[in-house]
Design a protein around this nucleic acid. Structure first.
Lengths: 202, 202
DNA sequence: GAATTTACTTGAACAGTGTTCAATAAAATT
DNA sequence: AATTTTATTGAACACTGTTCAAGTAAATTC
């Protein structure tokens, strides 16, 4: 078929993702380029465009497995907890730990900006939704009988944890003497949820 | 002096920043390039390198005025409030409003990553510190006698607000039916601070 | 006033980037 | 064996930031 030997579609895709993931993990998101991937695999740039429509699709695919692994981790770490507050604090700690341990891969997820006018692929959006649903389910017991408030709380906590991790990882929280992201995350989750409960008692 | 007419150093710097700011405001951070700036000004690329050492310094300078304007706004909006809780909620609202009204310029601030190994210029770091100090001062009355806790609260609130704005602006909080960043910011600030107070009463 | 030095602008050149596509070569089919 | 189909290739295009030798105009010196 080709000038060289035929490589199976799925196999090549897998190799591209594997190599890309390694590159990002080792040298950060800026080190990723089609030419470098091609060189590392040992094929021409055009060959990669045969199995991925562009670099963005490669990034999206790498990000997809990162999201999967975050979800697995959060599910594993927060499975066996009775106390809803303790469970959510644990969720925050897991999230922070994941960010720490997967700095470059998680940065790739956060840095991704979808082209204006386009939307995320459905399969990718579903992953984000699933992840968020996990948080919503965990906040539900704390604000019984009010689905809207549970969702709002989930959104605030999710965004808040994201903010802590984003600023902590980029060093932008290192004002004077930085506290660890773990301490801040616990403070956020505990006090926000305490506040929600206090609000109920008024 | 030059092949063309001499342009004063400070004047050229100002023009570069002016043009750059316009470009970012109008077409986003990705639209900024040395060549486009040069074309818009009507000079050669090298001329720009005469007054700025590289693109990063241009971005940093644009970001500096953005930070100044954010600080001015926060100071103006939160000046005349007695109630510390109300003042901090107002701060959150101001921050969200600023992000909304200056989306592209604020994105430029957030997207900036300093080259590994280097540190922010002192004058820029000072601006960030000042901004953060503003929040710390406002949290202080709420956790009297404990400077450490006040700082931690400031960090959590600052990071949390950042997370809400970042996710809301990038559309990543649009799960199912998104609530406005303003509502989420108020929920964060109010309940987190309520929680802090509740913690004291235990 | 003329010659020289100094200072600044210029844009081609370099090393990158993503993406496209005509040419090529090997496998599959006739 | 000839033909068709199909995947691979890498040069080419349009960008990017950055550098620097060459050129020019102003300032200085003689």
């Amino acid at each position: 078929m080709g000038r060289g030997q035929k490589v199976e579609y799925g196999q090549l895709r897998a190799t591209v993702i594997e190599v890309s993931t390694e590159m990002v993990m080792a040298h950060g998101s800026t080190s990723l380029s089609i030419r470098k991937i091609a060189k590392k695999i040992g094929c021409a740039v055009g060959t990669i465009y045969n199995v991925f429509s562009n670099l963005d699709e490669i990034i999206l695919t790498v990000n997809s497995t990162t999201l999967s692994e975050l979800q697995s981790r959060l599910l594993a770490d927060t499975g066996q907890k009775d106390d809803a507050l303790a469970a959510l604090i644990g969720l925050g700690q897991s999230y922070v730990a994941f960010c720490r341990e997967n700095y470059n891969l998680w940065s790739l997820v956060l840095e991704h900006k979808l082209a204006p006018g386009s939307t995320l692929p459905e399969w990718h959006q579903q992953q984000v939704d699933d992840l968020f649903l996990l948080v919503t389910r965990m906040t539900a017991p704390l604000v019984a009988d009010d689905n809207e408030r549970a969702e709002r709380a989930a959104r605030v906590l999710w965004a808040g944890l994201h903010g802590i991790c984003a600023l902590a990882m980029s060093g932008k929280l290192d004002v004077v003497h930085a506290e660890s992201a773990e301490v801040l995350a616990e403070s956020l989750v505990r006090n926000y949820l305490l506040g929600l409960r206090a609000e109920d008692m008024v």
